[in-house]
Design a protein around this nucleic acid. Structure first.
Lengths: 230, 230
DNA sequence: ACGACTTTGTGACGAAGTCACCGAAGTCTC
DNA sequence: GAGACTTCGGTGACTTCGTCACAAAGTCGT
């Protein structure tokens, strides 16, 4: 396994489009100054009040980032996929501030951990690396803007339809309870239940405990489209 | 105006706490590589689809950042005050991506414009400057999280009370129409009207065309506090 | 099969957004 | 200063969504 590690080390950089242009010396330092870590599904990758000391680049799995409000309720903020980095961590790492949101591994996760020292060194030395980092930021901020826009202006049924289409596997099944879908969209479970009932009545989905099966994709897509135009 | 510029140049850096620790050589390059600009109130400082080529540091005035949705409605995102920088610009500048939000000068604005070349150079060379930039990012992202949290979980009356207290001048007067307050909070004008009527009934505010006078500050503060605890 | 837990369904209600419309207050023009 | 026009604020009816309370299933361990 150790033998293959070096090969893996050399290889993971190319999972990230923005890093493939790194010159060889920088690339070598990046590989040398970072390590690959794995955590099982359900692990709290980071949490509020914890100071960040490393940047995570996801190789496999997804991390859900959410915020816990004063009242104990939760809002889903965004999801970090393989091939992406967690700006939140980055932000706090560089600003020497604490996190203000939770990060939870939704699946088993493999990631590259870049310690602050390595990170800072690379940001100083490599324009390519800088651009990689700032692009990640930019993308995430845009996501947040879109999220706010959705929350404020979009109807729940449209948002749910859209999210179901996103979350569905190739077989068209979404594995999630109503409560989970509720926190995903920042709404109450009851609203999800009622909306899904309506979708079922229209023949767009079939429900069973803990999962939703999309059987009328076209209907959901039509709903999303009709709202997208305004 | 040009004569005084050089004197101003030397001084503005100390308006920004995070920059005061800059070493002299960096400081000189920053001053040399940037320029001071002024725009009148109401100017659109930036807009979606326009590529950013400089970072703005506000010396005087405020800039309102908002997003226009597909449907033509607007959501207020945050406000950039004197002594702060506009991360949004930064994000897009560095990522070579376009803006996705509007920036509007609410007052006459004076700002330092740092062109991309200077910015990139400074990020590479100065750890202090890096920290300044990333701290600005971090703060703004945290703001967005708080905003989302508020939108999802906080009652409108609490949010309005809180915003009135923020916007009020030293004389306790807020100059804004109901419609403006509506977009500030991402809600409808009618909701503002009704809520303000209720505040007036309770003796907390007095209304006249285009302005709201706070006459019972304690009541508003009490409302905000009671909700803040959860 | 029993109890404990989780998931889902439902009705009632309050808070907030939407729509349609009105009148009142400023502004402009002549 | 008399209309014409625009902006601003008020109101009622209705819809959507969040909240609360509680019931009915489904699942699991023992």
């Amino acid at each position: 396994m150790q033998e293959t590690t070096e090969k893996t080390d050399a290889g993971w950089i190319d999972h990230f489009a923005g890093l493939s242009a790194l010159p060889d010396d920088i690339r070598a330092d990046l590989v040398k100054g970072s390590q690959i870590i794995s955590v099982p599904a359900g692990t709290q990758v980071f949490e509020p009040g914890q100071s960040a000391d490393r940047l995570l680049l996801l190789l496999q799995g997804t991390v859900r980032v959410q915020q816990r409000s004063d009242t104990g309720r939760e809002v889903f903020l965004f999801r970090v996929h393989a091939g992406e980095s967690c700006v939140l961590t980055t932000a706090c790492m560089l600003a020497f501030e604490d996190y203000s949101a939770d990060g939870i591994a939704e699946t088993d996760v493999t990631a590259v951990a870049i310690p602050r020292a390595t990170f800072d060194d690379l940001v100083a030395r490599s324009a390519v690396f800088r651009e990689f980092v700032f692009t990640a930021y930019s993308r995430r901020i845009t996501d947040l803007f879109t999220l706010i826009d959705d929350i404020v202006f979009q109807r729940m049924d449209v948002r749910l339809a859209s999210r179901l289409l996103e979350l569905a596997g190739p077989d068209g099944v979404v594995h999630a309870t109503h409560a989970v879908l509720g926190t995903e969209l920042g709404t109450a479970r009851e609203v999800i239940s009622r909306t899904l009932s309506e979708f079922q009545r229209r023949g767009w989905v079939q429900q069973s405990r803990g999962e939703v099966r999309i059987v009328g994709r076209a209907g959901l897509e039509q709903l999303v489209r009709s709202a997208g135009e305004g």
